[in-house]
Structures are given as structure tokens and as C-alpha cells.
Write a protein that binds this DNA or RNA. Structure first.
Lengths: 193, 193
DNA sequence: CACCGAATTGGACTACAGTCCGGTTATGGC
DNA sequence: GCCATAACCGGACTGTAGTCCAATTCGGTG
């Protein structure tokens, strides 16, 4: 938040874009886990130092790639139509509907990018909980659970089974439909109380 | 499950014990994350190959170290007194009480060995969900949730916030008391339904 | 007790994440 | 247009997890 942000240098911007392009391509072709940071750097025509300097670590690279999708979902939550968003004045959806809509929409997002999301969450210890996006989801869910004794804590508990690592295992064992149904049931149980 | 298990060789047994001793000591002194597998091998007077052959990977070593504690808890659940165990015939505890007791006891166990547990769960992708212990907890919880529409799925959802990685973050942010209370509330919400 | 097959051992080897710093290049003021 | 300076670049370097296989050791058997 500098007063006049020191504009990103032209070469830096070019490299950033090259890295994101190269990474997206390699990930799509070979799978997220099979691609090394060296490979990304080489494919982008960039040194390893540059890669790590710009993105911190592998998790940071994943976060950058997910950024656009996350923003879409966040916008829909803040400004969008009901029941996911707040809707028009005088026509606000109930909190139970909003929570359920959030769970559904989050699952759409997470399941569509599961490997990338997993990389962004498991890169370094506690990575998931430090990223801005998690704080956003948490804040939103806590608001919708405001009537409960400890909304903050309950919001964390509701988000836990939405972690990529957990979703991956749950979907592999139960299939997507049962996971979705169960998450909805959990949301209902928490608002109902 | 061979008919007559080919007894573990004497030297192998000696090495296994040496490794577990050395690992326990190093972990206690320097913290789980600061100890490399090389260091464990050296301290145990054993080659690296041996270490990995016996324990698979770092997560496997952690599982072996936790084994005794896990068994204690499992025994208490299967044979112990109510409400954690089944209790005496004619004096069975309610499922709601048993679930709550399980959550409490599991938190005792998990919080007492958080780093080790974290290592055992995050070693390789999906490690947590493949280990026998997890299957046990899941089976137990699913039984206690048998009245629900999809007990298996709900059991996974209840276990998700008990993952070491999640507990670590939650306790750091909220403190142990709030996490315990919130987990209990979640259990109640699921049996109540 | 000497031998044999099988299990075990250990350290050299690979691959990968992440760090560091000397050299290079862009940018804004003059 | 030129220069000082700060930001950026890239590849060599380190530390660690995990693999591999030739040599060794064990434990039962004749």
C-alpha cells in the first residue's frame, strides 16, 4: 500500500507472465506434481533465482495461478446475486441458504483445480491458513455462523473438510456426489443448531 | 498375515530398536522438523538404506513412534470403561456421549504429539488416509453416526478438523480451549440432527 | 559344524526445493 | 540524452528425501 506504487519493471512483468504461461502449460500437460521448479524456469526462459524471488516457493506459484479464479468467487460472494451473494436490498437470502450456496460454489472451484489447490495449501507448513484467500473464506463463513457461540472456531471447523488434501481423499473414496451431499449436511447442522 | 510369520532377524530387531530410540531422542531434543533422516541414521549407527527400508519414509517413522500411544487409545475405545469404551453390559453409554468422549480423548492424544502426528500425516500425499489408525478412527466414528443419512461421509467430515495440520493452525489462532469446545459442538451438531 | 539361500545392510547416487550473490539492466532525475 | 541507483536476473551451490544394488550376515539344514 505505498502512496505511489513503484511500477513493476517492464522486464519483470514480462518474466512474470512467461512464468505463469509456462507453468500453466506444463501443469496441464504433465500434472502438477510431476513438474519441477527447474522445468518451469527452463520452459519460461528464466533463471531459477527469478522464479523463487517472484513467487517465494512452489505454493506461491500455485497461489498466483489460482488468483484469477479465486477473485471471481470472491466477487460473486461480495457483489453477486443471491443466494451466493447478498442479493438486492429487500431481497436478502437467509444465512442458511447463503452458507449452503457458498459450500456448493467453493466445491465447484476446489474440485476443478484440486491438484493446484493442493499444491498451494501444502507447500510449506501452515500455508493454507496464512494465504489471503483462506482468511476471506473464513471471514465469510464466520459471518454466516454469527449466531453460534463461537463462530470463528466453527468456521474453521467447517472449512477443514474443504481442504484440498481432504477433498482428494474423500472424493477418491466416496465419489463427488456423496462428498457434496455430506458437506451440505454439515453446513445445515451448523446453522440449524 | 503369513501362516507362520518368518521371525524378524535378530540384527534387524536390534536396528529397529536403535532407530526408534535415536529418533525419539533427537526429536525430543531438537524438534521433529529440524531432524534429518541422515541424522537419525547416523545417531542410530545404521545406514540410510536400512532406515528407509524399515520405515518407508519419514511419515512411516513417525507412525512407528506413535504406534504405542495409538494402541492405548484404541484399546480404551474397544474394551475400556464408558463413555469412551462400550462399558459394562446393561450400562452402555449413549452414542452422543461416546462421540463426545472420543473427540476429547483424541484431542488429548493429538495435542500431546502434534509435531509427530503432523509428520505422520503430511509425509506423502494422502498419507493420513491410508494409515491403519485413520481407518480405525473413521470406522469408530461412522458407527457412532450410524443414524445419519451417510455416516461414512460424515465421519470423514468430523475427522477433518482433527488433522494435525488443522489443529496446529486452529490452536495457534484460537487457543486449545476454544478448539476443544468447538469440536465438541461439532460432534453434538452431528449426532443431534 | 559347515554350508546355502534369503533377508538385510549401508553408503554412494539421483533429483529436487530453495538460497545466494556478482553481474546486468531498467528507470527517473538532471 | 546521460548517469546514478535500485531492482532484477540467472546459474552455481547447499541440504535433504528417497533409491539402488553389491557385499554381508543371519538362521535353518544336512
Amino acid at each position: 500500500m505505498r502512496a505511489s506504487p513503484p511500477r513493476e519493471r517492464a522486464d519483470a512483468a514480462r518474466n512474470r507472465a512467461a512464468v505463469l504461461d509456462a507453468a500453466a502449460g506444463l501443469f496441464r500437460r504433465h500434472g502438477v506434481n510431476a513438474v519441477s521448479m527447474d522445468a518451469v524456469a527452463t520452459a519460461a526462459g528464466v533463471g531459477k533465482g527469478t522464479l523463487f524471488r517472484r513467487f517465494g516457493d512452489k505454493a506461491g506459484l500455485a497461489v498466483a495461478l489460482l488468483d484469477a479464479r479465486e477473485r471471481e468467487l470472491q466477487d460473486a460472494i461480495i457483489f453477486g446475486a443471491a443466494p451466493l451473494g447478498p442479493g438486492k436490498p429487500g431481497d436478502e437470502p437467509g444465512q442458511s441458504d447463503r452458507l449452503r450456496a457458498f459450500v456448493d460454489a467453493y466445491l465447484d472451484y476446489a474440485l476443478a483445480h484440486l491438484d493446484l489447490l493442493r499444491m498451494s495449501e501444502t507447500g510449506s507448513p501452515g500455508a493454507r491458513y496464512r494465504v489471503g484467500a483462506y482468511r476471506f473464506w473464513h471471514h465469510h463463513v464466520a459471518l454466516l455462523l454469527a449466531h453460534r457461540a463461537d463462530a470463528d472456531a466453527d468456521a474453521h471447523a467447517l472449512l477443514a473438510p474443504l481442504a484440498a488434501e481432504h477433498l482428494r481423499a474423500a472424493v477418491a473414496e466416496l465419489g463427488e456426489a456423496r462428498v457434496r451431499r455430506s458437506m451440505r449436511a454439515l453446513a445445515d447442522a451448523l446453522v440449524a443448531d
